[in-house]
Structures are given as C-alpha cells and as structure tokens.
C-alpha cells in the first residue's frame, strides 16, 4: 500500500525533472542545430564575405554570392524605425496607464492592448498592404507604398504591447516616496512624472525598448508582406527592403536540401538568433535589476 504510493511519488518526481531537462535540451538543440548547419555553410563561404558583402545572389549562374550586408542593414533600418515610432508612444501610454488613468479605464485599456498583441503577424502584414501602403503612397507621392517605412509602422504596432507592459511595470516600481518628495516641493503631476518618476526608472524603460526591439527584429510575415522585398541596399525609408527573416522565409521553400544555399539560410538564422539572444539577455539583466529595486 504505502510502497505503491511512494513509488508513484518518486515516479512523478523523476518524470517532472525529465520534462524539465528536455526543455533545456530544446534550447541547446536549437542553438546546436543553427551552429551545425551554419558551420557547414562556412565550409564553402568565408565568414568575411558573408558579413562584409551586400550582394546576396545564391542562384547566380556560375558564381553565387552570399553577402548578408544589405539584409542586415534592412533589418536594422526597419527595426530602428519601428522603435523611433513605438518607444515614445509606448512610454506615453504606459505613463498614462500607471499615473493618470483611473482604475476602471485601465481595466478596459489593458485587455485592449492584449488583444492588439494577439493580432497574428500575417493579419498585420495584410493591413500594411491594404491600409498603410495606399496612405503612404498618397502622402509621399510614391507609386508603391510597400517599403521600409510601411514595415516600421507595422512593427511599431507589434512592439507597442511589449513596450507598454514592461514600461508600465518599470514606472510602477518607482517608490511612492520619490513622488511624494516632489509633490511636497510643490511639483504638479506632470513635472513629477518628467523630472522624478521617468528618470528614476530609466533602466526599466531601456529594458522595455530592448524587449520591444527583440520582438520586432525577428518578425517575419509582416515585413515579408509589407516592405516590398527588394534584395538591395536601401538608401532610406522609402526604399523597398528585404530583411533577414523575409529572405529565409522566401528562399527556404525553394532551395534543395543540403546545398550551400540551404546552409546559408541557416547561417542567416544563426545571426538572427544571436542578435535576438543578445538583446533579450541584456534586456532581462536590466529588467531584473529594476524588478529587484521595486520590491
């Protein structure tokens, strides 16, 4: 009787630990898979020409080229553009939610922002085609509104929920005593926010920005659909671009398994993985600091 119960107790303990171990293996597996396939790529292409060249033309007859410069720059351009739009908007919204809005307003707005976060990226991309592109082409007199700017606007929308929730948490973590100090000196709520509260949680706001960045830099479908897909070095926001993710998405379907081109796409994935990993690790370590401070 007792033995059976003890047996199951131990059985489940081990089962849970096993599941947890498998979970670590998945991350290591993803990392290892990218590394392994990436290495195969660098057997035939030098790292220098991969990172240094902007000419990506794997199907060129005779001499295929694998330079990711244009893609990397496109990815950064679109993502940074998105941050320029999303960060002020996101921090403004977070400040409104945590410092100004009455409780019942917050109770309605926060689920709405969750819903915004839930919109599938392919739907956002579709909106880019049918709503944002015509607006852009009309305002700026372009023949086609599918360009880096369009991507930035859409990615800003996708980054907003992340930025808002982390920034709100950061603003809330500022001790009330700071604000009371400012009020006691006769500052009003706006002055307090700008001179005391926001400066006190700068690190949290940076973390929010970086997590938002991590979210958009790996976004695929939205940029694939709305940025025009031109495989060339962009000169500004009105140029069509093709990001790392879009390249992988487009070309993986067409390459034969095991070719240099195939492994090249894994190498692109590895670069993307490393970028997001570094951004997320930095953001987490910053966020961990302000979370501790808030307690």
């Amino acid at each position: 009787m007792m033995n059976r119960r003890t047996f199951w107790d131990r059985f489940y303990h081990r089962l849970f630990a096993f599941a947890a171990g498998l979970c670590v293996l998945v991350l290591l597996g993803i990392f290892g898979m990218l590394l392994l396939n990436g290495f195969r790529f660098f057997e035939s292409v030098s790292l220098w020409s991969f990172l240094g060249s902007s000419n990506w033309n794997p199907s060129a007859w005779g001499k295929a080229t694998y330079g990711m410069g244009a893609m990397l720059w496109s990815t950064l351009l679109v993502s940074l553009g998105a941050m320029v739009l999303a960060v002020p908007l996101g921090i403004g919204t977070a400040a409104y939610l945590s410092e100004v809005a009455p409780g019942w307003v917050r109770d309605w707005i926060k689920p709405a922002i969750e819903l915004l976060a839930a919109v599938p990226s392919v739907v956002v991309g579709f909106i880019g085609i049918v709503v944002i592109a015509p607006i852009i082409s009309r305002i700026f007199g372009l023949s086609n509104g599918l360009n880096a700017l369009n991507g930035s606007i859409l990615l800003a929308v996708m980054a907003l929920p992340t930025i808002i929730s982390v920034a709100e948490e950061a603003i809330r973590s500022v001790p009330n005593t700071y604000k009371e100090g400012a009020y006691a000196l006769g500052a009003n709520s706006w002055t307090t926010l700008m001179t005391v509260t926001l400066p006190a949680c700068t690190s949290g706001l940076i973390a929010a920005t970086m997590l938002g960045m991590g979210r958009v830099i790996g976004e695929t479908m939205t940029v694939l659909m709305a940025t025009g897909n031109a495989n060339a070095m962009p000169h500004g926001f009105f140029d069509p671009v093709r990001t790392i993710t879009a390249t992988v998405a487009i070309e993986m379907g067409e390459v034969p398994y095991g070719t240099t081109h195939f492994y090249g796409l894994y190498a692109l994935g590895a670069v993307l993985f490393l970028i997001t990993l570094i951004i997320n690790l930095l953001a987490e370590s910053i966020a961990a600091k302000f979370r501790k401070q808030g307690r």
Binding site: A20, C23, V24, L34, G218, T220, V248, T276
Partner: peptide, 26 residues
C-alpha cells in the same frame, strides 16, 4: 540546473518564430 532551465525558458520565449521553423525543418 534550475537557473539554466529558467534562463532557457526565458530565452526560448524570445526566439523568433522563423527560427522555430528552421529547427522544425531540421
């Protein structure tokens, strides 16, 4: 092990979805 596990989970959540696609393919 616990710390490694938590770090893995946090970072898995931040891995771009297309990377999962590459992993699934491989």
């Amino acid at each position: 092990f616990t710390r490694l596990l938590r770090a893995s989970i946090r970072n898995l959540a931040g891995v771009p979805s297309i990377i999962y696609g590459l992993f699934g393919l491989a």
